[in-house]
Amino acid sequence: MFEYCADPDILSTFEWFSCYLTNGKHLLFYKSFGLVLLLLIITAPLAILLGLLAAVGVKSKIFLLRLFSKAYANIVRGIPDIIFFLFIPITIDQLIEFSRHKIKCPEITDSVWQGSDFIVCSAAKLPLNSDPQWIHDIYGFLLAVLSFAIVYGAFAANTFYGAMNSVPPSQIETGKSFGMSRKQLYLSVIFPQMWRYALPGLSNLWMLLIKSTPLLFLLGIQDVVYWARELGGSKTSIFQYPHPDWRVWYFLSLLVFYLLLTKISELILNRLSKKIYIPI
């Protein structure tokens, strides 16, 4: 970063730290904070969408849809999120590659599972082997987003279900007496009314989501926890900046980051809930 960083062995303490904290590895660490924020911003609307779909599904007239939505909302919440993250991404990945394999290479009749190997033809791989690493990174990230959305969508489903039931029946009756169809009823009465009842639950969900992001590293993503562990570990002189075990400092800085994130979210959400009249 700075010109005097060429030979870290002869630097004074201050200069050493200024070089150390701006080396390539640290820049990747700082970027990973952005990754966490990006995950939150993309996952939240997706989880809300899944939650809405499932909540409508629970109230559906079609038996199978109702069963599926109920099973989704209840089973996912009965299992710790960490267990989900350990096998949902690999399941989604294999499902996608399996279907691509069936479509793209119908001529190959061998099973895709041979022993413990999972083999699809090279055209069916996603991303392709020949793709640059950044495409693999984005794909991995999208899998993570999807996994988070699936888990938190189940929580959102329940919030929405509760909120829909809180919409005063008289309003729905009024809508019906106007001759509204089911679809119209949802779009112009239930959904607009429901948000106010759902806001407290959704605020909590957002907090929950923030606090589950350290699990990203389980999904094979180089997130803040990965880099904190990697940077904090003791380094021998094979590295340019040898140092003893500093993990405690890196993790304390993560603690501060998360405290700030939740505090700011809380302030914003409080303002929002003051603006919107929330009936209890």
Partner: peptide, 14 residues
């Protein structure tokens, strides 16, 4: 997009 995506060159080893 997930399904029409086609290979460029298959010689990359990860």
């Amino acid at each position: 997009l997930a399904f029409i995506y086609v290979p460029a060159n298959a010689d990359t080893v990860r």
